[in-house]
Design a protein around this nucleic acid. Structure first.
Length: 421
DNA sequence: TCTGGGGTCCTAGGACCC
DNA sequence: TCTGGGGTCCTAGGACCC
């Protein structure tokens, strides 16, 4: 039996989440900004129509914002994460297997459902239910490989006449779409590769699909060869519905202002470490390696540039916040230099392994057991996220912490911010 | 003034071993 | 005069994704 995948992708996800709770914004241009309110990371349909590009720094479009009365939001990940879970749980009810691929998209396995339901009807049903139950509009692309399903989804978004569902299970339809799809829109072909492919005369997705596989592998890599095979309809990428444990955890942020003092840097690095350690504990893992990075800005040519990082192994693998903060602070002291205006710092935990459960506790030192208890208690109070209880080294004022001037309320995750009707 | 953050996979090349 | 070759492991860097 041949495989069938669907890719379900939310339309303009962050912007849709925002307008959902402010109906007067419907049909108006909306942009959502990156952390620190730096660049545009999401746009409503109307904002796209105004020609606002993904990733553009917000200060470059401030005239447009005023002129077209564009609604501007800081990223509100509490809201988007919660809406995402609602959408995903509907998909899990409807499809036998689901791979949550990102905050706003999921691959489904539809293998076998054709015997009792048309693929297109299934796509339409998914679209309608998600719309009705969450208010979010999705598009559905259906095809025998993930890469083709991506392409189908792209077409469903680009051509409203499709009604938001494209079934590419027929070979003739695949070829027609491949021939009109520019090479850089193929999943797995980024900016660099598309330049090199065009030099070889490969302009369209069809061009890549029909290119000699062996020379693709020789000139590029097995990855691109796989993409070409997938475009031909040969499934090389399986549905990964069991999530593998993470291999590394990163927490880094740009500051809201330039930071020079070691004290403030220490606060920020302590905060990022605490956040990373929370994620590590939520994963039920421990880490063996810790690294700290920091850098100045590099857009301003008049400022001296400096960037550095330091890494250390841990004596015993751990996920204890205070222990990790102590090490991170030590690393930071080693790479901090006075006289620079720092723009960003970050922490990375790596060489992760599963946390030992149960029995091992019996033999670990009482002090260690107490610390473990303390971390568990903190996580419980904070609900597994960062919250009210924290370690003093993180600082209280946090003047460096990121700008979020246009943050919407936590409509769905905080009782006192629930929308009133 | 103002330019995000968090991940994965693959490859080439060096170190080392026999 | 003649100075091997194959294998593994690790790391840094490049490319991609959202």
């Amino acid at each position: 039996m041949s495989e069938i995948f669907a890719l379900v992708d939310c339309n303009n996800f962050y912007a849709s989440c925002e307008s959902l709770f402010q109906p007067k914004l419907r049909n108006r241009p909306i942009v959502v900004l990156s952390n620190n309110d730096g660049c545009v990371v999401a746009r409503s349909k109307e904002a796209k129509q105004l020609g606002i590009k993904m990733g553009v720094p917000v200060h470059q479009i401030k005239d447009m914002i005023r002129q077209h009365r564009i609604a501007v939001f800081s990223s509100n990940y509490a809201l988007y994460g919660d809406m995402s879970q609602r959408v995903m749980s509907i998909l899990e009810q409807m499809a036998p297997q689901v791979e949550v691929y990102s905050i706003d998209e999921a691959f489904l396995s539809l293998t076998g459902i054709e015997s009792y339901q048309s693929l297109n009807d299934f796509g339409v049903a998914v679209r309608e239910r998600v719309q009705q139950w969450t208010g979010i509009t999705v598009c559905v692309g259906i095809a025998p490989t993930k890469t083709l399903a991506k392409l189908a989804n792209h077409a469903a978004k680009a051509y409203p006449a499709t009604g938001g569902v494209v079934d590419l299970s027929q070979r003739e339809r695949q070829e027609r779409l491949l021939s009109i799809t520019p090479i850089d829109e193929v999943w797995g072909v980024g900016r660099r590769l598309s330049v090199r492919l065009r030099e070889l005369g490969i302009e369209s997705a069809l061009g890549l699909a029909e290119y000699d596989l062996k020379s693709l592998r020789q000139r590029f890599s097995v990855v691109l060869e796989r993409t070409a095979r997938e475009l031909r309809g040969e499934s090389c990428l399986a549905l990964e519905d069991v999530t593998e444990p993470k291999q590394q955890i990163v927490c880094s942020r740009s500051f809201s202002k330039r930071v020079e003092s070691l004290d403030e840097l220490r606060e920020s690095v302590a905060s990022y470490t605490a956040r990373a350690a929370e994620k590590l504990r939520a994963e039920q893992q421990v880490c063996k390696m810790l690294s700290v990075t920091l850098r100045t800005g590099f857009f301003n040519p008049t400022e001296p540039i400096y960037s550095n990082s330091a890494v250390t192994p841990l004596a015993t693998p751990t996920n204890d916040s205070s222990q990790l903060i102590a090490e991170a602070t030590r690393l930071l002291r080693g790479i901090w230099r006075p006289g620079y205006r720092y723009a960003k710092a970050g922490v990375m935990l790596s060489e992760l392994s599963p946390q030992e459960q149960g029995q091992a506790d019996l033999f670990c030192a009482p002090e260690q057991a107490r610390r473990k208890q303390l971390m568990q208690t903190i996580d419980q109070i904070n609900g597994g996220k960062h919250g009210k209880v924290f370690i003093a080294a993180q600082g209280v004022q946090q003047e460096w912490s990121m700008k979020r001037r246009y943050l919407s309320p936590a409509y769905t995750t905080r009782w006192n911010e629930v929308p009133l009707v």
